[in-house]
Simulated scan of single mutants.
Amino acid sequence: MTALETVRLYYQCFNQRNWKGMLTLLDPEVRHEANQGDVRIGADKFTEFLQKMDESYEEHLTDMVLFSEPSGKRVAAEFVVNGVYKKGEPGMPEAHGQPYVLPAGAFLEVKEGRISRVTTYYNLPLWIDLVSKTK
């Protein structure tokens, strides 16, 4: 499977809320660089992140576009996050089921058929504005 196919399957699993499927595509020492916060290293830390995200957010990605560079090791993804804010997090607005639609992107690296890095970017001030305006 190519890096592009691996990343496509990873995001298909995300949209199906198939967390086990996502995790099988990760290198055991995956480097996860979220938009905000510390870098997480390892599949165990990524699993903890997924559990926290699943509690607080319900998200589905649309308008997915994937790009691969010539060596086939790195993939860029552009997408729209369609979400519901279910449970508040410290330092963030109160959650009460607010919907949001937010453009985002990610950069992934694939090594020996498994995703070894996931770096995700989105506009956090825009997200805060979106969930703060919805009552």
Rank of each mutant, 00 (worst) to 15 (best):
G91L: 02
L4A: 06
F46W: 07
N82R: 00
Q51P: 04
T24I: 11
K20D: 15
T62W: 08
T134F: 09
F14P: 00
F46C: 00
E78N: 04
E33S: 03
V75M: 13
S56P: 12
S116M: 10
F46M: 12
A106K: 03
V81A: 09
G83L: 12
W127M: 13
T119W: 06
G88I: 10
A3W: 11
T62C: 06
G83R: 02
L108Q: 04
E78V: 10
T6M: 04
G21F: 03
Q51N: 12
G37I: 03
L26K: 01
A76I: 04
L23E: 14
Q98V: 05
L23V: 10
L102W: 11
L66C: 07
V81P: 00
E5L: 13
S56W: 04
L108I: 03
A34H: 06
V81N: 03
G88K: 03
A34F: 10
Q12K: 10
D38F: 09
D44F: 02
Q36V: 13
N123F: 15
L23F: 05
R17F: 11
E109Y: 05
G42Q: 02
T24A: 15
A104P: 00
G91W: 02
E69R: 00
V118Y: 11
V30E: 10
Y11I: 14
E58S: 15
V118W: 12
Q51Y: 09
R40V: 01
Y85Q: 06
E69C: 14
R117S: 11
I115V: 14
V84K: 14
E59G: 02
S68Y: 09
Y122G: 00
D54M: 09
H60T: 08
L9K: 15
Y121C: 00
V75P: 09
V30K: 01
K73H: 11
V81G: 00
R17E: 08
W19V: 06
G91A: 02
Y122E: 14
P28R: 01
D38K: 11
N82K: 01
A34I: 05
V118F: 13
E112P: 03
V131R: 05
L124P: 00
Y122R: 05
M92T: 06
F107D: 00
V84T: 14
E59N: 01
F49H: 08
F107E: 02
K135N: 14
L66F: 12
T120F: 08
I115W: 11
H60Y: 09
T62R: 07
H60D: 08
N18C: 02
T47L: 08
N18H: 05
T120Y: 04
P93G: 12
V39E: 07
